[in-house]
Design a protein around this nucleic acid. Structure first.
Lengths: 347, 347
DNA sequence: CAATTTTTGAGTTGCGCACATCAAATTTCT
DNA sequence: AGAAATTTGATGTGCGCAACTCAAAAATTG
């Protein structure tokens, strides 16, 4: 038998007794208050180690009881994936409430660096924690760094700004996601040759760009017999995507596959259906939405590479809380997976 | 702007005032204590609704403060996946400790219904919550039902006993997992025909049997040109698997793919390497272990269908806690996904 | 109507910790 | 040495709720 945590009734009082000091001193050490000599601090810390003291989360929370304020900055517009994230954050309401956290979901134009940077700057001092779907741009990076310098915990969401001082990135490795899409297309083609069309939202978005990069990497390395067409930009808009794919289909007789790095799968579905090519062209896209789900079920898309917006919403909340209240982050738990969704493992 | 939880300082006192009753009465209603008339109970409940009262988790926990005891019954032996789960449960120690939960990890022979049933019966009264990797057998089901009848919260882990009264199943849909493996093999074969070998642990295990079922379903429906060989049982043992696969390779000239429903991938890898067929035969297996990871990286396996043991360990803990302390379960969060792992999206 | 039962109020205690305050002890400086 | 600064102790309060007890009020009964 393997007993976890046999007897952990170790309280601050026990620590104080073991260290031969008063409760007040233990409190000073633990909460980093001034006025403790190094010697006593060491005594206390060693007692904590020795007794394996672990503060009771409930009591600490209750006693602290100053509510934390979080802000989540999401792109406006009608991006379905972002709406899903927002919904999952709202679904967390009980979790937030029980922890005395208020979360404001703010919409903004994340595609404009100035707007985003200004918006970020306006949050300083008003929030303890900020999550942002960020554009990777020097001005945005500076705004993030300023927030961090001001004592605000900042995490990036879905799209990262690696060079900034953000404490954490909640999202997937988009290069790996692109590689995964590439491997799926390469494998599914099973030796067939021809051209592969690429529909992307915008090359200016870091996540899309990284997916393209990973995709190109794998195709070049593993499937050199397949030719990649230059990416066409549809801004994640179904109408534009439809027009672009229709043109691809007429211009490219030997088109064998399509890779969509972003949203707007519905437009691709319509274009393929119109051309009667729905199940002849191999399609792989990203993110699970009502549209992409439908196209996966009817066989238009062979697979989706996705990230779980619910997991991201919860991970964001946990990480921000951990950051502002100085508690540990369970490793592994916050790793967002690159998921492969076929018709058969649809959640 | 979308503010979550604008001002939720609603406490029991507020509810009492709003309902025009005393704190004691509110407490009686909320905690189901006797001695409250229907009329007052309704008044209180409506006040709770109206004010959107949500008990502060921390305070409730602190006040309750009777430690909960959980038991986790895992199969003994050297199953790597089970060891991973155990490790992830141990990694939860701080989480458990902070919530005054003690968890005992018990090993037993889950393959023997009598042993397992006896073991389960012995837990009655000693634990508030039990998680068990269960064999689907009438005697085991009866033991689970007895535990539940005695007031113990029971969840099944990894392998379910659907007909029992367990409150929850923490694990994947194994039929979907088998279907996913089937689709991967079918797609990856890309029109090639031939025979597919199946290596299974034991047909007596519900999870393996369900995977076989799902796999067979997809292959029959979607890829009728491919012939499935009868499954061979290797008991998840690398040695046996090696021998079985070696025989398959010599006996079946037109073997094009292998499906392993369980563990022991290492044995398959050795057999394939010995026969020089490592990257010629398409292999799909289950679960991510050091062995399967290696074989995925070196190209022997094309894909793995997996479940996240860390997620399962955490989900089990959350669900048990929710069950014993009557708190809500966040839907979605406890759904264990059927993951597809390629070389490119290895975690 | 009185006697009983049921329902409600009022209050206390404690969970373990954070965060004060004030006084006492100790060390450091002049 | 005395004065000043630093370090420590003692003690209290409150966070919001659970879980009691005991008495008072109301409703039900004979």
């Amino acid at each position: 038998m393997n007993s976890l945590d046999p007897q952990s009734n170790v309280t601050l009082k026990d620590v104080a007794a073991a260290a031969g000091v008063s409760l007040a001193t233990v409190d000073r050490v633990i909460n980093g208050r001034p006025g403790v000599s190094d010697k006593t601090a060491r005594k206390v810390n060693s007692a904590i180690e020795r007794l394996n003291f672990q503060p009771l989360a409930a009591a600490a929370e209750l006693a602290r009881s100053r509510p934390s304020r979080f802000a989540v900055l999401l792109p406006g517009g009608d991006n379905r994936f972002m709406k899903d994230i927002a919904d999952h954050i709202r679904a967390q309401a009980p979790w937030f409430r029980a922890r005395r956290i208020t979360a404001d979901i703010l919409e903004t134009n994340v595609f404009d660096a100035d707007t985003l940077a200004t918006e970020l700057a306006s949050l300083a001092g008003r929030y303890e924690g900020v999550a942002v779907v960020a554009l990777d741009h020097p001005r945005v990076r500076a705004a993030i760094d300023d927030l961090v310098a001001g004592g605000t915990a900042v995490v990036t969401l879905v799209s990262d700004v690696p060079s900034s001082r953000r404490a954490h990135y909640v999202g997937i490795d988009n290069i790996a996601a692109g590689r995964t899409a590439g491997s799926l297309i390469g494998r599914f083609l099973g030796g067939r040759t021809g051209r592969v069309g690429i529909v992307t939202g915008s090359a200016a978005l870091r996540d899309h760009a990284e997916r393209l990069f990973g995709f190109g990497q794998v195709m070049a390395e593993e499937y050199p017999a397949v030719t990649l067409l230059p990416p066409v930009e549809g801004r994640d808009d179904p109408q534009q995507n439809r027009a672009l794919v229709t043109r691809l289909l007429t211009d490219t007789p030997d088109l064998v596959a399509l890779y969509n790095t972003g949203e707007g799968a519905a437009g691709i579905g319509v274009a393929l259906a119109d051309a009667g090519a729905a199940r002849r062209i191999l399609c792989v896209g990203h993110e699970l939405t009502p549209d992409s789900r439908r196209l996966l079920l009817d066989g238009t898309f062979a697979a989706l590479v996705a990230q779980d917006p619910g997991h991201e919403a919860r991970s964001m909340a946990r990480v921000l809380r951990a950051l502002v209240s100085g508690r540990p982050i369970v490793p592994g738990q916050e790793h967002i997976r690159v998921e492969v969704i076929l018709r058969d493992n649809l959640p």
